[in-house]
Amino acid sequence: MIEVPSRLEGQTFQLYKLEQELEPLGYTIGGNWDYDHGYFDYKLGKEGGYQFLRIPFKAIDGQLDSRSVSVKFGKPFLLAHTYQRGLDDYADAGTFSGIINQFSEPQDKDASFPEEYIEAGKQCVKEVESVLLH
């Protein structure tokens, strides 16, 4: 994980507005949220796994499933996941495990981050700053 200093940190926005502004740029929330916090993710690459820019946020006046909730940004960071090839060593063969555990565990949740994506991630943060902090 590589933290990226940003003027976004500590800024407050309505989540609905953020979704309207960031989704056209390629950011997704997807399954990366809970009722009090979440992440905007931007996939930078797929070199040996996946490289993401992740911008964390926390709800400050309600739950994330409320249309009017406001959120505060945390410090953006770059994250790489390298997934196992082949069978998962920890796969459970129980009756319902195929329904629940469909994906392999990451081989390295904090994999090294390719240099070329570090600068790309920093530029993405600057783009988000220019869109949201104009």
Rank of each mutant, 00 (worst) to 15 (best):
residue 1 M to E: 05
residue 1 M to Q: 12
residue 3 E to H: 07
residue 4 V to P: 04
residue 4 V to W: 07
residue 5 P to R: 13
residue 7 R to Y: 06
residue 7 R to M: 11
residue 8 L to R: 06
residue 8 L to G: 00
residue 10 G to D: 07
residue 12 T to N: 01
residue 13 F to E: 03
residue 16 Y to M: 05
residue 16 Y to C: 01
residue 17 K to D: 15
residue 18 L to P: 00
residue 19 E to S: 02
residue 23 E to W: 00
residue 24 P to F: 08
residue 24 P to T: 03
residue 26 G to F: 05
residue 26 G to N: 08
residue 28 T to I: 12
residue 30 G to K: 08
residue 30 G to W: 11
residue 35 Y to P: 03
residue 39 Y to C: 00
residue 41 D to Q: 14
residue 42 Y to W: 12
residue 48 G to E: 11
residue 49 G to T: 14
residue 52 F to L: 12
residue 53 L to F: 06
residue 55 I to K: 02
residue 60 I to G: 15
residue 60 I to S: 08
residue 63 Q to Y: 14
residue 65 D to E: 06
residue 70 S to A: 09
residue 72 K to N: 02
residue 73 F to L: 11
residue 74 G to C: 10
residue 75 K to E: 07
residue 77 F to W: 05
residue 77 F to R: 04
residue 77 F to M: 06
residue 80 A to N: 07
residue 81 H to K: 07
residue 85 R to D: 05
residue 87 L to H: 12
residue 88 D to C: 15
residue 89 D to R: 13
residue 90 Y to I: 04
residue 91 A to C: 10
residue 91 A to M: 10
residue 95 T to R: 09
residue 95 T to D: 07
residue 97 S to I: 00
residue 97 S to K: 09
residue 99 I to M: 11
residue 100 I to G: 00
residue 101 N to Q: 03
residue 106 P to S: 02
residue 109 K to W: 05
residue 110 D to K: 13
residue 111 A to E: 13
residue 113 F to Y: 14
residue 114 P to L: 13
residue 115 E to T: 09
residue 117 Y to Q: 15
residue 117 Y to M: 14
residue 119 E to S: 11
residue 120 A to R: 10
residue 122 K to A: 10
residue 123 Q to L: 08
residue 124 C to W: 04
residue 124 C to Y: 01
residue 125 V to Y: 01
residue 127 E to K: 14
residue 130 S to F: 05
residue 133 L to A: 05
residue 134 H to M: 05
residue 134 H to Y: 04
